[in-house]
Amino acid sequence: MNITKPKLIRWIISYVFLIAMTMVTIVPFLWSVSTSLKGQNEAIFSMPPKLIPVNLTFENYMTVWNSLPIPLYMWNSVILSFFGVLLPLIFCSLAAFPLARMNFRGKQLIFIIIIATMMIPGEVTMIPIYLILNKLGLLGGFAGVILPGAVSAFGIFLMRQAFVGIPKELEESAVIDGAGVLRIWASIMFPMVKPMLATLGILSFIGAWNNFLWPYLVIENEKLYPLTIGLYKLKGTFVTNTRLVAAGAMIALLPILVVFVLFQKYFIQGAYSSAVKG
């Protein structure tokens, strides 16, 4: 394999840039892990930063676990994340199916309007959504957190990109066999876009698990707090124990890492197929 000098230089520059970006991204994570494992007498803001603890300890994790009802908060986060993944997968794919596979007047205009809503900051829509939920009597519980995130313009876009790439012949064969629209969507289209479903599922899970501001505004009962709001109690009024905050952050991050490791194969496939079709 012959590699020309300009191509080799481009490769070296690319890898140096990627390594530098990786270091910028991973150093804060490593610092948090290191801080969560340091004892009370060990400096955490030293310069240069010391990422390897001198006296490694899990005392901070035990303190967080014993100080807060972590299992309850995690269970609440699991409930919110479960519906935060399930509903977008169903509703986004249902909305994307006609935009990708059906012909009707105004289809492109509707799609453009849906994509245009992605430019509206989420903070702009918080007050109207809050007022609507208040009128419906859905504030104070899980329903007020779950329903506003049940569908998203980005999810519709992803699923439309996936459905567009499916051969038309499969759909025509199903129509000849007498399959209806919902049957085609559920039995043919849905199973064929597993990589994109995994991509949307992972992104939805991360968003639902890390969601803080909206549950903080909607949920009133402390027993319904998700993990993100529960860990907020670690922040003191005047003094904040950074070691405990770092330990709590690592506890909250662990499920995300597990989900990503389990589904990273489908996530990469979905991202790649979307880039090729786009």
Rank of each mutant, 00 (worst) to 15 (best):
T4Q: 09
T4F: 00
T4E: 09
K7E: 14
K7A: 15
K7N: 10
L8H: 05
R10E: 11
I12A: 15
S14Y: 14
M21C: 15
W31R: 07
W31D: 01
S32T: 14
T35A: 10
T35W: 00
L37E: 02
E42V: 07
S46L: 01
P53G: 01
V54E: 15
V54S: 13
E59F: 06
Y61W: 07
T63D: 15
W65Q: 12
W65R: 04
W65N: 09
S67W: 00
L68F: 05
M74K: 00
W75K: 13
S77H: 07
V78M: 14
S81G: 04
L89W: 09
S93V: 05
S93E: 02
S93Y: 05
S93T: 14
A95W: 06
A96D: 03
F97V: 03
P98M: 05
P98V: 01
G106K: 07
Q108E: 14
I114K: 01
I114M: 05
I115P: 09
A116D: 07
M119A: 15
M119K: 03
M119L: 15
I120F: 08
G122W: 02
V124N: 02
T125C: 00
T125Q: 02
I127A: 03
I129R: 09
I129A: 12
I129E: 13
N134T: 13
K135A: 13
G140Q: 04
G141D: 14
A143R: 12
I146D: 01
A150W: 00
S152M: 00
Q161D: 06
V164F: 08
S173N: 11
V175S: 10
D177I: 12
A179L: 09
G180P: 06
G180C: 10
L182Y: 14
W185V: 03
I188W: 00
I188F: 04
V193S: 05
K194Q: 12
L200W: 06
L200D: 07
L203T: 07
F205H: 02
W214L: 10
W214C: 11
N221I: 06
L224D: 03
L234K: 09
L234A: 12
L234R: 07
G236F: 09
G236R: 06
V239S: 14
T240F: 04
N241P: 04
V245S: 03
A247V: 01
A247C: 08
A252Y: 05
L257C: 03
F260Y: 15
Q264Y: 07
F267N: 05
A271L: 15
